[in-house]
Design a protein around this nucleic acid. Sequence first.
DNA 1: TTGAAAGCGCTACCAA
DNA 2: TTGGTAGCGCTTTCAA
Lengths: 344, 344
Amino acid sequence: MVQIPNQPVPASPAQRPVPTSADVARLAGVSRATVSYVLNNTSAVRISEPTRRRVHEAARDLGYVPHAAARSLRAGHSRMVLMPAPTVPVGPLHSRFFDELQGALGRLEYTVVQYGSVGLRGDEAARAWAELRPVAVLVPGSGLGPQGVAVLKRSGARAVVTLGPERVEGAHALLMDHDRVGHSAGTHLAARGRRRVGVVVPQEPGLEIFSRPRLAGVRRALRGTGATTTELPLAYEEEAAARLAARWRALGLDGVFAYNDEYAMLLMRALQDAGVAVPEETAVIGADDLMLGRLLRPRLSTVHIELPSGRDLAELVDRAVREPGAPPETHEVLGARIVQRDSS
Amino acid sequence: MVQIPNQPVPASPAQRPVPTSADVARLAGVSRATVSYVLNNTSAVRISEPTRRRVHEAARDLGYVPHAAARSLRAGHSRMVLMPAPTVPVGPLHSRFFDELQGALGRLEYTVVQYGSVGLRGDEAARAWAELRPVAVLVPGSGLGPQGVAVLKRSGARAVVTLGPERVEGAHALLMDHDRVGHSAGTHLAARGRRRVGVVVPQEPGLEIFSRPRLAGVRRALRGTGATTTELPLAYEEEAAARLAARWRALGLDGVFAYNDEYAMLLMRALQDAGVAVPEETAVIGADDLMLGRLLRPRLSTVHIELPSGRDLAELVDRAVREPGAPPETHEVLGARIVQRDSS
DNA sequence: TTGAAAGCGCTACCAA
DNA sequence: TTGGTAGCGCTTTCAA
């Protein structure tokens, strides 16, 4: 191998420049306009078959891929639906909902992008999202304020939809009020004759958004019935559950809503190990209706939670994008239904 | 309200145009260049304090947010790391790994974007990703071929990293060979004196990527020991598990690797209901080391799986981006460790 | 210290 | 049927 003087070899192998539509045009011997027409199948313009073929071949030979940013810059809009990745650990429920949503939006020709905004918060995050000029933004959880909505709209977002516990000024809202979950559980326990009800509140950070309203829902259900509500902080660890179970009799509870099925299993195991009979001595109910619960003995009662169908949300988004002037819609979308098994 | 003739009122309220840096410049009474200098804190240029203030005020008043696409178009590159959202249902393990990765890349000033590519497959998907001109692409699972890697590199991706079962020509690889998981389980069961080993293979679609190599790993571990391996297709449903358990004695198995802890729980419950003693009659081992397993009785033995740290992957990405010419690295990153409890 | 202007890749209007 | 070209919003070089 001979080194050619005065022609330094780059440390890394020559980075061939990324081919542009101009390169395709050059190779095919046509103009950039023609390339654009051919590759986009522009119906307003008729290009001869031989030309089409030449363009397609040139594009293929060069490995040409259009530049989405340039395209949407030119077009003045994009079809990007931005969804900040939830920072909270969400369950399989949520991820199935998300897949469904993604599919439905895809069928409506939107591109769904999840944006990881760890470390950013509040309006700072909204800014970061706005930089991408999405046509719509779906924000799970709380954390976006009216300011944030304004920033997004100001920068061209035609639809902002929040999926969370409360409405935000200016945005469409899919209200997922977990109060209902607690309310169902509380009502159920009361109906089963339980008078001293415990409510597990996970100590894991980030879960307060769900656990607070669930607790409040139980309280609301029990208000006026004479039954009491006792908050039970619990970390998702065996030892913590064992400690809680050890003082169970002292607490004198005859029913417990365990936040969800996983915490319910944790607690139920600890209670059984401590000799507390379920459901005789204490009724236990979870939430989420996981397969898990059916496998426990006694089979776990649970609150089945229904999320909106991804298709419905996709349609809301599409409607909002088409009619950006329309007033924000608010939908209560969280359904809660008791599935009684043997633990309550 | 009077309609002004020949000046139709738009159906939706006047969409104020999105403010650009030119608008900011106009309002502040400076040039667009100055706006750019100020807002980007360009150190090569000194702008007087009063001017800076005027620019900042104008930007704030207008609610100006820079246009990321325009910026990266001009710059000729982006700091976007693209990660196609896995189409396979992944566990909590994976999502924690992902959060970690996201944080680490964020600290290195990369922007992580998850792209939902449902419906696209193979090179079609690679094209879609390439349109976004990411500086790096992290591809979980299989499905990306050498062609796809080439497409991505041609369109400017400086690093392509696969996270999956096998190497792909031209891409860095974080090999997560689930063969190891099965091998650990198989070795363990053999060491516990089990000679007729069943291996649960989930029937849920999409899981083959994991289940096949796990099965193969068990076979590899048992080869030459005289022990047999029996494939046990199983749907994640109580009835399916009950049917399997009903013919358990006919199968004559004395050990089973249940794919993961969830299937293990499903199967173990069915076995116990059918009167099969665990571990005396049949040893059961799962995988993933979920909390779940510790709560079962007998406590579930499991294969603890270690994924690479998100920080390590982030560093690999950063290295690859800085030195795109470097030969692809391959790392075996999946650690498998037996956690013996009481079910085996 | 500030401004004018070129140009990133693309599409769509208007002319030829 | 095809080509020339303006311009989307931004940064950066060069000049003033």
